[in-house]
Amino acid sequence: MPYSLKPLPCLHLMLIATIAAGAFVAAGPAAADPQELKMIEHATTDAVTDTGAKGDSAGDILTFANEVFDADDKTKIGTDQGHCIRTVPGKTWECFWTLTLDKGQITVEGPFNDTGDSLFAITGGTGEFAGAQGEMALSAYGTKGDAYTFIYKVK
């Protein structure tokens, strides 16, 4: 009988280790909080090409290549460039652009609303942002209509 009891602690330890490992796998690694990047875009190069009916109409193209500044709007930290296609005249554009910073690039895509805030999907990146996911919130900055606050929440 004593001989048959000796393997039991070893079996018991294996069972505990298996349960602990299973719990770790089920829980997965702890999800890191998204990295938040806040900046101000100066929309100085925006240009609309009228492609369809005269005036604001579906299919018009908005192109831009603008400077981007820190959250205090004092120091240039990068640039962005992209394009939008008018989808709903007077209301919405569908946009795609690339933000370029010293540490890499971040791409976004989604609807830009003529009024109010907009929310974009982060679709990828390069450098320190390789494989980036998350979202980017855009809102008007100031009252002139020529600057925007960008808040990137990068996972």
Score class of each variant (00 low, 15 high):
residue 16 I to T: 09
residue 73 D to Q: 07
residue 42 H to D: 06
residue 50 D to P: 02
residue 41 E to I: 13
residue 51 T to Y: 03
residue 131 G to K: 14
residue 74 K to I: 11
residue 16 I to E: 07
residue 137 A to P: 02
residue 33 D to A: 15
residue 24 F to Q: 08
residue 7 P to R: 10
residue 16 I to Q: 06
residue 16 I to D: 03
residue 36 E to Q: 14
residue 57 S to C: 03
residue 12 H to F: 08
residue 33 D to M: 13
residue 108 V to G: 04
residue 79 T to H: 03
residue 112 F to R: 11
residue 92 T to F: 00
residue 115 T to V: 10
residue 2 P to I: 07
residue 75 T to L: 05
residue 7 P to L: 04
residue 28 G to V: 12
residue 97 W to N: 08
residue 144 K to Y: 01
residue 94 E to C: 01
residue 11 L to S: 14
residue 51 T to D: 00
residue 82 G to K: 08
residue 124 G to L: 07
residue 34 P to Y: 06
residue 154 V to K: 00
residue 136 M to G: 01
residue 58 A to E: 13
residue 121 A to Q: 13
residue 124 G to Y: 04
residue 29 P to W: 00
residue 75 T to Y: 00
residue 16 I to K: 01
residue 106 I to M: 12
residue 60 D to Q: 07
residue 116 G to W: 08
residue 58 A to W: 13
residue 131 G to P: 05
residue 123 T to K: 06
residue 69 F to N: 09
residue 74 K to R: 13
residue 65 A to R: 02
residue 116 G to R: 12
residue 8 L to R: 12
residue 138 L to A: 09
residue 86 R to I: 03
residue 76 K to L: 11
residue 57 S to H: 14
residue 34 P to W: 02
residue 6 K to L: 14
residue 13 L to E: 04
residue 72 D to R: 06
residue 42 H to S: 09
residue 52 G to P: 09
residue 99 L to I: 06
residue 136 M to I: 01
residue 51 T to V: 14
residue 126 T to K: 05
residue 131 G to R: 11
residue 143 T to I: 10
residue 106 I to G: 01
residue 63 T to E: 09
residue 122 I to G: 03
residue 11 L to Q: 13
residue 132 A to K: 04
residue 74 K to N: 12
residue 106 I to W: 01
residue 36 E to G: 01
residue 10 C to F: 13
residue 18 T to V: 15
residue 17 A to P: 02
residue 108 V to I: 15
residue 94 E to Q: 15
residue 127 G to R: 10
residue 4 S to R: 10
residue 134 G to W: 01
residue 99 L to P: 01
residue 91 K to T: 11
residue 5 L to K: 10
residue 21 A to H: 10
residue 154 V to G: 02
residue 134 G to R: 08
residue 68 V to Y: 03
